[in-house]
């Protein structure tokens, strides 16, 4: 029997939605193994997680205020030891990627990262070589840690009756890292990884994102970008879609002025419908696009915005 610990992620005391994608992966694992799911969340949001998971352990004291990998990994590992966890499941967000390997090291566990599918109790699918290959990996250790690609697992539903959230007393280790500041990029648009429509711009925008943003607002979409755009400082780093950026899988992905390098495709190939707008008919993006339009984005996008408005 497995004892699965799903790790919650929170910001300002509110549970992040990615946690619920990770929970679905944990539930799939429980189905393969038979077993129980516990939750742990460091820094608050214990009650909120207990809406979804029966047994929740939360760590809330000033020493854990900032999400330092050293302290948060220690708290998660403590919770895992306390319940005798056989599996620890975390969403592969920046937070999850930062802490999960440290949790694995503390537990002597093997780690499978950015998992796409649960094959069996100890086998998982994951992408390698920028998604050019899908590997099935086997974790051979008694305790396993996995981080999961959120786009591959739907959001879990609330439990029939809320569970119990109990405080876990852990002493924070003396951290060798100090938090100095966080510069938040605020946006009124939906979050990239959660949006059902994404409009992305590439180098073809030459840094002018107005037509991209206008269309995004008409569609209620999130804005994304290629690496070229983010490297140039035209858009913030956390809008980068791709192998080494965010992975998205919206209902509709519109790529404008993006050539379609394999590293970009790795982050959006899973979208349901893909539209490409590029003035080069040979651009590789057209090979993955359901609908391709060979056009100048500065002409096509405003037209598109107008046409969509007419529909609404």
């Amino acid at each position: 029997m497995a004892t699965i610990l799903v790790v919650g992620e929170q910001a300002h005391g509110q549970l992040k939605k990615a946690t619920l994608n990770a929970l679905t992966a944990a539930q799939q694992l429980a189905q393969k193994n038979g077993g129980q799911i516990h939750g742990v969340v460091v820094g608050g949001a214990g009650e909120e997680l207990a809406q979804f998971v029966q047994n929740v352990h939360f760590v809330q004291n000033a020493q854990f205020e900032h999400a330092l990998a050293e302290t948060h990994a220690a708290a998660v590992a403590e919770a895992a030891k306390k319940i005798g966890a056989t599996d620890v499941v975390i969403a592969a967000t920046a937070y999850g990627k930062d802490i999960a390997p440290r949790v694995a090291a503390k537990l002597g566990a093997g780690i499978a990262s950015d998992v796409l599918a649960v094959v069996s109790a100890n086998q998982f699918k994951r992408a390698m070589w920028a998604g050019n290959a899908i590997a099935t990996v086997e974790v051979t250790t008694p305790v396993k840690v996995i981080t999961v690609r959120t786009t591959e697992f739907p959001v879990a539903q609330k439990a029939g009756s809320p569970g119990q959230a109990q405080q876990l007393e852990v002493a924070a280790p003396q951290a060798k890292t100090k938090f100095l500041e966080f510069n938040e990029v605020k946006s009124a648009r939906p979050e990239l990884t959660e949006a059902s429509v994404v409009v992305s711009g590439g180098r073809g925008t030459k840094g002018d994102f107005k037509p991209i943003e206008q269309l995004a607002d008409v569609l209620g979409a999130a804005v994304g970008a290629s690496r070229a755009v983010v490297d140039a400082g035209w858009q913030p780093n956390d809008l980068q879609v791709g192998q080494t950026g965010k992975v998205v899988a919206p209902k509709l992905y519109i790529a404008a002025g993006i050539s379609g390098a394999i590293q970009h495709l790795a982050g959006m190939k899973g979208s349901k419908t893909i539209v490409a707008i590029n003035k080069d008919p040979e651009a590789p993006i057209f090979q993955v696009a359901d609908y391709g339009l060979v056009a100048d984005l500065f002409k096509a996008l405003p037209e598109l915005s107008e046409e969509v408005k007419k529909l609404k």
């Binding site: 390698m128 086997e138 974790v139 539209v275 359901d290 096509a300 046409e307």
Partner: peptide, 26 residues
């Protein structure tokens, strides 16, 4: 601790179509 047991090609996306103009796209 983690072994690769199988490597497969990713699922291919079905080829799409080119549309002549914005109106057709919409």
């Amino acid at each position: 601790k983690v072994k690769v047991v199988k490597v497969e090609a990713p699922p291919a996306r079905a080829a799409g179509v080119k549309v002549p103009d914005v109106a057709t796209l919409v």
